[in-house]
Simulated assay, not measured.
Amino acid sequence: MMNNMCVAHRGFSGKAPENTLAAVRMAIALPFVRWMEIDVQLTKDGVPVVIHDYSLDRTTNGHGKVKNMDYEHMRRLDAGSWKGRAFRGERVPSLEEVLALASGRLRLNIELKTVGDMYPGLAQAVIDLVNARGMREEVVLTSFDAGVLRRIKELDARFHTGLIYDSRSGDPAGKLDELGCSFLSISFDRLSPVLAKSLIARGVQVMAWTLNKGKEMRRLSEIHSDIMICTNRPDIWGELFLKA
């Protein structure tokens, strides 16, 4: 039986504008969605907001860098119309808003979007919000950036952390050990059966992204039933796995 866990990528981003409350609500509405992946950055005035790109241009009607914009200014932007008229008026949500919706409903893979010293206060701000809601055991904090993963462990070693990996070479298993991570987020075409099985045997959670076709999901499920499937289309996951 195929029972690979479904992770909604940026919410139900295949149908709703990614990383918005509409996408979060649509993911929550599907009872088989157990996890959701979101992206977090900081506004100029230090508010953690849920948005993927460093620039506002693709997913809002604003322009420029997230890090250069105050939260109140960002709140006035439209983050939904690009996906369709039905989503006009959707906003860039704060992390606090997403945590409030997800608490007790979905576990969260929170990607900290940063490189080097771009957001020196990001780890602390995210940790504070998650702890304030008592959600530490409901989240994993992930990043491509090794520095921010080390910083999380320095600030609060109780947090589960995960490395995001997208390379054809290197030693992801060794990197996980070095950083004290218990979670690997990896592009599905980079994940070999040998790596997946060895990490899972060691107790590492493995999440593959981003699979939007049934044949891709089925192929991955044949490697190991514990690999988490991150998808923009949780509805396709449901059609495939709930019939299996």
Score class of each variant (00 low, 15 high):
R88I: 11
G121V: 09
R151I: 09
F159T: 04
I110Q: 00
A196W: 11
A244Q: 13
M207C: 15
R151F: 11
N19R: 11
N3A: 14
P193N: 10
R219M: 12
V206F: 02
S13T: 03
S13G: 03
V206L: 02
D145A: 05
G46Q: 05
R202W: 14
E216L: 08
F32A: 12
R158D: 14
I223P: 00
C6M: 01
R10Q: 03
D156V: 12
C181R: 00
A23C: 10
D166K: 08
A201R: 15
Y54A: 08
R25N: 10
R76M: 15
L242R: 15
G89M: 08
K65W: 15
K175W: 12
L195C: 08
A27S: 14
D128M: 10
I223T: 10
I110R: 00
L21K: 01
W209N: 01
L195D: 07
S81I: 14
K65I: 03
M36Q: 08
Y71L: 06
A208W: 01
E216Q: 14
E137H: 15
A86R: 15
N19F: 04
G14W: 04
P120N: 10
D189L: 05
R105S: 10
P93F: 06
E96P: 04
K197V: 08
A23E: 08
V98P: 02
M1P: 10
G238A: 15
H52W: 06
W209L: 02
G214H: 03
P31S: 06
A123N: 03
F87Q: 07
R76G: 15
S221M: 07
G147R: 10
L155N: 04
D45E: 05
V130N: 06
G121T: 11
G238C: 12
I229V: 15
A8K: 00
R25F: 09
K113C: 05
N4C: 11
R233W: 07
S225N: 14
L195K: 07
M217A: 03
M36A: 11
L242Y: 13
G14H: 12
F241P: 03
P31A: 10
Y119V: 03
N109P: 04
R75E: 02
K175D: 13
V66R: 00
A244P: 06
L240F: 12
E154K: 15
E37A: 06
M69C: 13
V50L: 06
G214V: 02
E178P: 06
E138L: 07
F159G: 01
H52K: 06
E18G: 03
T60C: 07
L184Q: 07
S225W: 07
L141E: 01
E97A: 09
D53M: 05
R133D: 11
P172M: 02
L101P: 06
G116W: 08
E216T: 13
V126P: 02
K213F: 11
R85Y: 13
G104T: 10
R105Q: 12
G147H: 07
M228L: 09
